[in-house]
Simulated scan of single mutants.
Amino acid sequence: MPVNRVSPPSVHNPSDQISQVVTVEGTRLVHLSGQVAWDAQGRPVGLGDHEAQAAQIARNLDAALAAVGATRNDIIEETVYVVDYTPKLLPAIFGPLRAGVSEAPASTLVGVPALFAPEYLLEVQVVAALPGRGAMTEPYRPTTPQRTSVPGHASPTGSARHPPRAKIKISKRHSPAAPGRTRPSPRDWSASPWRLWRRWACA
């Protein structure tokens, strides 16, 4: 999963705890809701203490990311909302958030007057990147050529096969002769008495 983190010298980078530019390729993005300092039962942790709340948020991020097979090293972008922000709070906030992390994400810190409840001083929203699900499987292709052929379609060798034409035997039909008589041939007709009489009568 190619992830490239860059802090170009032409852009001021106040700390190595953040990256100015992050690019990802061939990944799945994981978007987390903003995490605050509460435990699994929803009870506030570290009342009035930014550092204690940052440590609890880091634990919540670990648990949420683990549900999809990710860690805080996979975070590529984060937004941190801080109540009563002063620059002196930076080590207390980013110390717990970066503990055990080898690569810093792109980061934005926003000072806010309040969050959704007065007990919470920090909220962290992150985006993580995971490897893609893999290449698509190849469609099934039979390993042996098909031997069957369809009339009028090309065979596996490329030539068209046609079914052999049926040979139909046509016989001449003769009208049956009268019972007890045989049908004379034309030669017999010319020698019949009727023909001889017609020749004599017309002479």
Results as ranks from 00 to 15, higher is better:
V3S: 01
S7T: 05
P8D: 02
S10H: 12
S15G: 10
D16I: 07
D16N: 14
S19L: 06
S19M: 04
S19R: 02
S19Y: 09
Q20Y: 04
E25N: 01
G26M: 04
L32P: 01
Q35P: 02
Q35S: 11
V36S: 11
A37C: 06
A37W: 02
W38V: 15
A40P: 10
G46F: 11
H50N: 00
E51T: 12
E51H: 02
A52V: 07
A52G: 10
A55H: 06
I57C: 01
N60L: 02
L61G: 01
L61D: 00
L61C: 03
D62E: 11
A63W: 02
A64H: 04
L65D: 01
A66K: 10
V68C: 07
A70F: 01
N73G: 11
E78H: 08
T79L: 06
V80G: 06
V80P: 12
Y81K: 13
V83H: 00
D84R: 09
D84H: 13
T86C: 04
T86G: 11
L89V: 02
L90W: 14
F94N: 15
G95L: 13
G100R: 03
G100I: 02
V101L: 02
V101W: 03
P105R: 03
S107N: 10
T108F: 05
T108I: 12
T108N: 14
P113M: 08
P113L: 07
L115P: 01
L115K: 07
F116D: 15
A117W: 05
Y120W: 14
Y120L: 15
L121G: 13
L121W: 13
Q125M: 13
Q125R: 15
V127K: 08
A129N: 00
L130N: 01
A135M: 06
M136Y: 03
T137V: 14
E138N: 15
P142W: 03
T143G: 14
T143R: 05
Q146C: 08
Q146G: 15
R147G: 09
S149A: 09
S149K: 12
G152V: 04
H153Q: 13
A154H: 05
T157W: 08
T157E: 09
R161H: 00
R161Q: 01
A166Y: 00
K167W: 00
K172F: 06
K172Y: 00
K172C: 03
R173V: 07
R173N: 06
R173E: 10
R173M: 10
R173S: 07
S175C: 01
P176L: 06
P176E: 01
A177I: 01
P179M: 13
G180L: 06
G180R: 08
T182N: 05
P184W: 03
S185M: 14
P186S: 10
D188W: 03
A191W: 03
A191N: 08
A191Q: 09
S192Q: 09
W194I: 04
W194K: 00
R195P: 03
R198E: 06
A201D: 10
A201H: 06
C202S: 15
